[in-house]
Each structure stands twice: as structure tokens, then as C-alpha cells.
Nucleic acid binder design. Structure first.
Lengths: 146, 146
DNA sequence: TTTATAAAAGACATTCACATCTTTTATAAA
DNA sequence: TTTATAAAAGATGTGAATGTCTTTTATAAA
């Protein structure tokens, strides 16, 4: 499946907060999970980890919730992948040959290397801000499951 | 991890038989699993499924084992992926948005579509034969884990 | 200070990929 | 026909990703 569910949930979570930030300062897990149709506590753990990594901000208590911080929009997607899937995704051998590398390549090494590099480049240069478009209604629809 | 372990095991299994086909008509699971350092029974199930799908041949009993059939070498890798991972790998939305497609794209749709198409094209046009090189010693080394 | 609220923490369940072990079935050779 | 061999079948185990539930902690407002 290329990337984990967690990765998709993480991105959609951040994007939801970003889209809502004019309406309300903070977004609650309950609302996010409901609107995005993501298991609440599972999403909660992902959001918490992103807060720990300072990718987003979180506040407990009344009027609390999750919000963007001053660097969220500039976060490259690779940082999210790093947190949800780990960077091995881009480095591990497709044939599961342990010592596969350019010096000792598996028979699929070069065919795949190109694609993996492209993918990694895309994830390094694409930021959360890049994913946000002007039409918020269509946008919310596009990140929600239903 | 992009593709399953099963996929890597499957390819390495076929390649091992291909490389051995001058030495011996059939290759036994025991030998394959040992040389490739793949769990024996797990590899057995993958080989069995490939035999069911006529990607390779298999014979029980003494002097039995797995062998190539007349189409094995022309098998495109996509057929193996189909059997081990399923083709959804190339179709499912990275953000796990259910109704994601070109008409209703998720914010990452087009960035990823390109990569997925490239990957699929590679797997459609690359056959087992394409993976086999002249130097068998280096080749066996390259598909074995140690 | 008390209360309500919302995240954090943590225990536990489920599912699936991956792995191991045992029994059954097919078959070639003696 | 018997025997040995090798795959097929199937029961069971394990770990990681995913999902659910309950308890604890922090905090804003009254």
C-alpha cells in the first residue's frame, strides 16, 4: 500500500485544522475524527505525536484542541512520513535483499531506485501549504471520506 | 514498504529456479529456502500459489520440486504483484480518501498518480527474463540475503 | 476553588502479514 | 506394491498496525 493509514490520517488531520483556522482557533479531536471519518483515539495518538514533534500545537482543557503552529504550513510531507512510516520506506530493497545497494544491486534495484528517488524528492519539496487550495468546500470534501 | 515481503520472496524464488535450470531440472523448496534465506513454509505457500496460477510448474514426490514452465520467463512482474499484493497498490489513495479520483482528487492525487503510473508501467513491461543477467555467480549473490 | 472540557496515557481487542509445525497427498524408483 | 521424497494442506503462533475503551492530567471559565 506504499504508505500506512497513519500517514493519510495525519495529513488529513493537519489539513482539516488548516482549513478550519479562520472559523475557530482550535479544533477538537471529536470533531476532526467525526468529519474525517477516522477512528477517534487512533487519530488522537497520531495528533499527539505530531504535537510532540512540534509539527502542530495542542492544548488541553476547555477551549483546547489542536491548532497549527508557526511552522506547520512549511512542514514538508517527508517529516510526516518520517513520523508515521519511517524513512526506510524509501531505502529498503523491494526484493528484500539485505545488502542491496548500487555496488551490489538486486535485479530490480535500478528500476525502482529512480521511482523511489522521485517519490522522496516530491515528499521533500511538497509542504502542507502546497496541499491547500482556495476552494475550501471542495477541499474539505476532498479530504473527508464521505 | 511499497511492496510486501511475499513479493520479494516470490521473485527471488523464481529467479533462483531460473538460475539453476542448467544444473538441475527441478529445485526443491528446502534448497531454495535455505539458499535464499526465506522461511521455508512461507516460501512454499507463495510458490504453490504461483504454480496454481501457472506462473511456474511444480511436481510432487521424489525428483519433484519447482521448475519454470514455457511462459515463466515472459511473465511480467505485475502478474506477481497481482498475486502477492493485489493491484490496489497502484490504485488506492495515499490519503485514504475513499472516493479519490481525477474528478474528485485528494490534495496529493496528482503528485502521487505520476509515480504510481511509472511504477505500474515498469512492472508491466519488465519480465522475469529481464531480471536475469549473464553472470550467474554474481546474480545468485545478488538475490540471496547473505 | 470548583467544575467542565479536552488531550494524554494506558490497557486491551482485532486484524493481517509473516512465520512455524504437523499431517496428508502425489509420485518416481526400486 | 512398497518406500522414500517432495509438495500441498492445514493448524497454530507471533508481531506490528490498527482500532476501542477507560482513566488520568491539564486548563479555562465561572
Amino acid at each position: 500500500m506504499i504508505f500506512s493509514k497513519s500517514f493519510g490520517y495525519a495529513i488529513r488531520g493537519i489539513l482539516y485544522i488548516a482549513v478550519m483556522k479562520n472559523e475557530k482557533q482550535r479544533v477538537q479531536l471529536d470533531e476532526m475524527a467525526g468529519k474525517l471519518n477516522i477512528p477517534r483515539h487512533f487519530l488522537g495518538k497520531i495528533m499527539k505525536r505530531m504535537a510532540e514533534e512540534k509539527i502542530i500545537a495542542s492544548t488541553k482543557g476547555p477551549y483546547g484542541g489542536f491548532s497549527l503552529n508557526n511552522t506547520t504550513l512549511q512542514t514538508p510531507l517527508i517529516s510526516i512520513i518520517h513520523l508515521t512510516d519511517g524513512l526506510e520506506t524509501f531505502n529498503s530493497c523491494v526484493l528484500r535483499v539485505r545488502k542491496c545497494n548500487s555496488k551490489n544491486p538486486c535485479p530490480l534495484h535500478f528500476e525502482i531506485e529512480k521511482t523511489k528517488n522521485e517519490l522522496m524528492t516530491t515528499f521533500k519539496k511538497t509542504t502542507i501549504a502546497d496541499l491547500i487550495q482556495e476552494n475550501k468546500t471542495a477541499f474539505i470534501k476532498s479530504i473527508a471520506t464521505f
